[in-house]
Simulated assay, not measured.
Amino acid sequence: MYKVRVENVCRCFLKSGMAENLEFETQEKAKEEAQMMIEKMNSSFCQKHEFSLNEQFGDYTIYIKART
């Protein structure tokens, strides 16, 4: 199983209804979902945060940090 996790969730993320932890059968599906989540977050969230994607051993973590 390949995982997508979201670290340091913000208020916009909590309101979005997206899941913080997801599991997928293939690494390709996990990567595709992580990229779609970041795209949605960048286009519809309040723009007070930056989102980055980190891949390690086939698992993906989305980090949320305040814009400077």
Rank of each mutant, 00 (worst) to 15 (best):
T68Y: 01
K48H: 09
F45R: 00
L53F: 11
M1N: 14
S52Q: 08
F24I: 04
V4F: 07
K29I: 00
T61D: 01
E55Y: 03
N42P: 00
Y2K: 10
E7I: 08
E7L: 12
E33A: 15
H49P: 05
E50A: 08
C10R: 04
Y63T: 06
K31C: 05
C12A: 02
K15P: 01
L53C: 13
M18Y: 12
A66W: 12
F51C: 02
V9S: 13
E32D: 15
E50T: 06
M41E: 02
R11L: 10
C46H: 03
M1T: 14
Y60I: 07
E33D: 10
E23Y: 02
Y63V: 01
F45L: 00
N21R: 07
E39A: 15
F13D: 07
K15A: 01
E23M: 06
S44D: 02
F24H: 06
Q47D: 04
A30Y: 04
I62H: 13
K29F: 05
M41S: 09
E50F: 00
M36E: 14
I64H: 10
N21V: 08
N54F: 00
I62Q: 11
C12N: 07
L22V: 08
R11D: 13
Y63F: 10
M1E: 14
K15S: 07
D59R: 02
V6C: 07
R67C: 10
Q56T: 03
A30N: 00
E39K: 15
K29L: 12
N54L: 06
E39V: 09
A19D: 10
A30K: 05
S44E: 13
Y60C: 09
T61G: 01
T26M: 07
E7F: 09
Q35F: 13
F24Y: 12
L22H: 04
E32R: 13
V9W: 07
L53D: 11
K48G: 09
I38V: 15
K3Q: 11
N42E: 15
V9M: 15
I64N: 12
Q27T: 03
K29H: 04
F45Q: 04
S16H: 00
E39F: 11
A30V: 00
N42I: 09
S43F: 07
M18T: 05
V4E: 06
E20V: 10
A34D: 07
R67M: 08
V6I: 15
K40I: 13
K3G: 05
A30W: 04
E55S: 07
E55C: 09
E23S: 10
E33I: 14
V4N: 07
F57Q: 13
K3E: 12
F51D: 01
S44M: 02
N8Y: 06
N54I: 10
M41H: 05
E39G: 10
H49R: 00
E39T: 14
F45T: 01
M18L: 15
V9N: 07
N8M: 00
M37P: 06
E20T: 14
K48V: 04
F51L: 07
T26Q: 10
T68D: 05
N21E: 11
E55V: 03
I64R: 03
S16R: 00
L14D: 01
L14Y: 00
S44V: 02
I64Q: 14
T26E: 04
D59V: 02
E28C: 13
D59G: 03
L53H: 11
N8R: 14
E32K: 15
I64W: 01
I38G: 12
Y60R: 03
